[in-house]
């Protein structure tokens, strides 16, 4: 395995979101009302990074917040309205990876893969960024529509960490918003970034995992074949990775043509014009 830096990940510069933007007056928390949504937004992240706190801040709901990993084992749903668009927000169970077969990881993964969120908010704990980036990178293989919520910034500051979020944003290729969800600090900026990604005003260019050697060659070959078969599939590389690992669920999805439906659905209904099912 090489230890070289990942290939150049310099991208079209993203609009950098500066903290301190006045709260958007047009945010309306809709609580459990998730009817007629325009955009579907998923909340993912490691356990105990504050996903449920972000969820509550955005929806105005009182989803139970605990301080232990694994508290949210099912998905919770809520809604908010921002600049005349309605968003349905789904709080996924916290997981460390998307590679194993436990129920909570499957719920999270299947939702990002088949639920086709218009934006996935990846909530990370700024005090243990490196560990949290493992999941972030896996999510970015599945979806290119993501925003990184760099949460618990107060905690990180208290421990003497300085985090260069602009550089992080450049490296990851998705908007990065520093937040303290408990005090709602950074929430306006987060909503703006989410609206930008969901509404395609912000174009993301997410970093892809840099495999090397024989694995990389196999991966590229299979990904190319998948892309040729299903042009427009945003996560061909990820599907290839799963197939090379022998993931039965993804094998079934490929065999049954679930991915064709996926691509066709995308083309038929560009994000943002979807009505509630």
């Amino acid at each position: 395995m090489t230890t070289k830096r990942p290939r150049s990940i310099r991208r079209r510069p993203l609009p950098v979101v500066e903290p301190g933007v006045p709260a958007p007056a047009s945010l309306r928390r809709l609580g459990i009302d998730t009817t007629d949504w325009d955009y579907l937004v998923a909340l993912a992240g490691n356990p105990n990074t504050g996903k449920s706190t972000v969820f509550n801040a955005l929806t105005g709901l009182k989803q139970h917040v605990g301080n232990w990993p694994g508290k949210t084992v099912a998905r919770a749903e809520g809604g908010f309205e921002y600049q005349a668009s309605k968003y349905k927000l789904v709080d996924l169970p916290g997981t460390y990876s998307l590679l194993s077969a436990s129920t909570d990881e499957e719920i999270a993964r299947d939702f990002i893969l088949f639920g086709r969120p218009d934006c996935t908010i990846i909530v990370v704990d700024a005090t243990v960024l490196e560990r949290n980036l493992n999941l972030t990178l896996q999510i970015l293989e599945i979806t290119d529509r993501a925003v990184l919520c760099l949460n618990l910034m107060d905690e990180a500051r208290r421990r003497g960490f300085k985090i260069n979020h602009k550089r992080l944003q450049r490296d990851l290729g998705i908007p990065v918003v520093p937040t303290v969800a408990r005090t709602a600090h950074g929430m306006p900026e987060l909503i703006e970034a989410v609206a930008g990604v969901a509404g395609s005003a912000i174009e993301t260019q997410p970093l892809r995992i840099s495999a090397s050697g024989q694995a990389a060659r196999a991966l590229e070959e299979l990904a190319a074949a998948i892309e040729a078969a299903y042009p427009g599939l945003p996560n061909a590389r990820w599907v290839a990775m799963r197939l090379l690992e022998g993931d039965k669920r993804v094998e079934r999805a490929v065999a049954s043509g679930e991915f064709i439906e996926f691509v066709e659905a995308r083309e038929r209904q560009p994000a943002g014009t979807r009505a509630a099912e």
Binding site: M1, T3, R5, P6, L99, L129, E130, R131, L133, N134, T136, L137, Q138, F161, K162, I163, N164, H165, R167, L168, D171, L172, L207, I209, S210, A211, S212, G213, A215, M241, E245
Partner: peptide
């Protein structure tokens, strides 16, 4: 190999961004 690549990338990015 994939898991290693993920860890390697995560380490590189975190090292660059966190002081």
């Amino acid at each position: 190999q994939i898991v290693e690549a993920i860890y390697e990338d995560a380490r590189a990015i975190a090292t660059g961004a966190v002081r």
